[in-house]
Nucleic acid binder design. Structure first.
Length: 466
RNA sequence: UCCCCUGUAGCUCAAUGGCAGAGCAAACGGCUGUUAACCGUUAGGUUGUAGGUUCGAGCCCUACCGGGGGAGCCA
């Protein structure tokens, strides 16, 4: 029986025999009995088991225990299990890195394969699972179809974000990669030797260079322009050389794409979605939220309740600039918002803020332009609590000529994008969508301050241990 | 990529340039029901790596490596 089931209905289970299986989180041998705390990963708290004899069980040992559930005579728990029969499923070696005392999140990152056994990571991952369920519930209710497009792609564009190349060849064998030194002369006649990639891609799996996707948006647009409203929870991959608390090389990317809606309606979907998730986790994961609130992230429950009740403010980019300037920040029209400005805005509005209608010059080629061709119909959702940008979305340019002009201007090659521009030739419709950092949202709902602590096995710059 | 902080026992951290330490964990023993139990004993170290300064370096200097934070960029 799962320990969470015991917590849910312990009153009806009292005085009956039950079987539990799990891992020892602490054991305290006395003269005649030993107190063992057992957890099976289903609940933030384990169950206290009373075992006859004074055998100590090493933290991490896996046990199967049959016994009677009784009311606990001591304080600290409502019920406990009196062991009748005990089977050691697996002994735990002395080298087990987890201790029964509190360990730092930093250090636990070295043991990603074991840290889920701690109360903290158990709670984080259960909440993340609940967020996932909430997501599918929400979009199904809204009539969205869930489809995950290809992850291996020919598209390397999307704002020049670093991409990972995919090959089936063993590039550790130099002859296959055929790296050669070649000489080039500059205008002054100065000779420099450069490594040239003479790799024959026609011999590779796809007969050309391909990449891991940085976003499923383009493919999703194609499906949306057939099925109306779609979403994905694909992984996206970015090879940026940055290690921060909010970046991963591989991250879960919630992306939605929908036809026949306006920018305002799109923002409303984002706001409704986040509030739906907040309500869902507060309902389904309240024990885990309380656990994190108490031991790891003070005020987490209040935060989630605030997200539900606070309206998300909406300002246009030009207003956002004015607000920042009035607060003494140095920023001009046409500049991107730094983290400092983002924080300034979420503080000014005391909550989440949509910033919309950014200058085209600093945004992507696919965003729908305004009539006067200076601003685009897009938005970023800025979150407080050190999260920053959680959603980026826009209406997509649905006019064939305008799209091609923007591609030219931004230096996007047309050939691999033909499928995308085709959509504007064959019954183009107004549509838009957004991308949301699913792991960043998990930070929001768990209080974790490092994104590496919201995924089971974080893969990040210079960090791929699993 | 840039800036800042940091690296001592399995973990958390001490040690004015002068003998390498404590608590927890581990192993063993004890304890009348414990709650991060408690008490006793034992074991545990190339102070991230490589150089340098010094009579003497965990401590000062340089480089590199790892970790964290911030910037930039993004989700």
């Amino acid at each position: 029986m799962r320990i969470s089931d015991i917590f849910n209905s312990y009153e009806t289970l009292l005085d009956s025999n039950i079987l539990v299986q799990g891992w020892v989180t602490t054991s305290r041998p006395q003269k005649d009995v030993t107190f063992v705390k057992l957890n099976d990963g289903s609940h933030p708290e384990g169950i206290q088991v009373i075992v006859n004899g004074s055998d100590k069980f090493v933290v991490g040992t896996s046990l199967q225990i049959n016994g009677k559930l009784v009311k606990s005579p001591a304080e600290g728990q409502l019920f406990e299990l009196l062991s009748d029969s005990l089977v050691v499923l697996g002994h735990c070696d002395n080298s087990y890195p987890l201790s029964k005392t509190k360990m730092s999140l930093d250090h636990l990152r070295n043991f990603a394969h074991l840290r889920a056994r701690t109360a903290t990571f158990g709670s984080v991952f259960r909440i993340k699972s609940a967020i996932s369920h909430a997501t599918h519930n929400f979009f199904e209710e809204k009539g969205y179809f869930h489809l995950d497009p290809n992850i291996i792609t020919v598209n390397e564009c999307e704002g020049g974000a670093g991409v990972f190349q995919v090959t089936e060849k063993d590039i550790s064998i130099p002859s296959k990669l055929a790296l050669e030194m070649s000489e080039t002369k500059d205008v002054n006649g100065k000779v420099t030797k450069v490594k040239t990639d003479n790799y024959d891609w026609s011999q590779d799996h796809f007969e050309k260079p391909v990449y891991l996707t940085v976003s499923s948006q383009l493919q999703l647009e194609a499906i949306a322009c057939a099925m109306g409203s779609v979403y994905t929870t694909n992984k996206s991959f970015r090879s940026e050389h940055s290690s921060t608390n909010k970046h991963l090389s591989e991250f879960t990317h919630l992306e939605i794409e929908s036809c026949f809606l306006t920018l305002d309606e799109l923002m409303q979907v984002g706001e409704d979605y986040i509030k739906f998730v907040a309500k869902y986790v507060l309902d389904k994961s309240v024990n885990d939220i309380k656990n994190l609130d108490k031991f790891v992230s003070k005020g987490l429950k209040d935060r989630i309740e605030t997200i539900i009740t606070t309206p998300f403010h909406r300002v246009k980019y030009t207003e956002a600039i004015s607000i920042a300037q009035s607060k003494g920040k140095t920023i001009k029209f046409g500049e991107d918002l730094s983290s400092e400005i983002e924080n300034c805005l979420t503080e000014h509005f005391c909550g989440p803020v949509f910033v919309s209608h950014w200058p085209i010059a600093i945004k992507s080629f696919y965003m729908k332009q305004d009539e006067d061709e200076t601003l685009c119909h897009n938005f970023d959702l800025l979150m407080p609590y050190k999260i920053g940008e959680l959603i980026g979305g826009s209406m997509r340019e649905d006019n064939y000529d305008k799209l091609l002009m923007m591609m030219k201007r931004k230096g996007v090659s047309e050939e691999p994008m033909k499928f995308y521009t085709d959509l504007r030739l064959y019954g183009s419709v107004p549509h838009g969508g957004f991308g949301l950092g699913f792991d960043r949202m998990t930070m929001l709902f768990t209080g974790m301050e490092n994104i590496k602590d919201t995924v089971p096995f974080p893969i990040a710059f210079r960090n791929c241990a699993y």
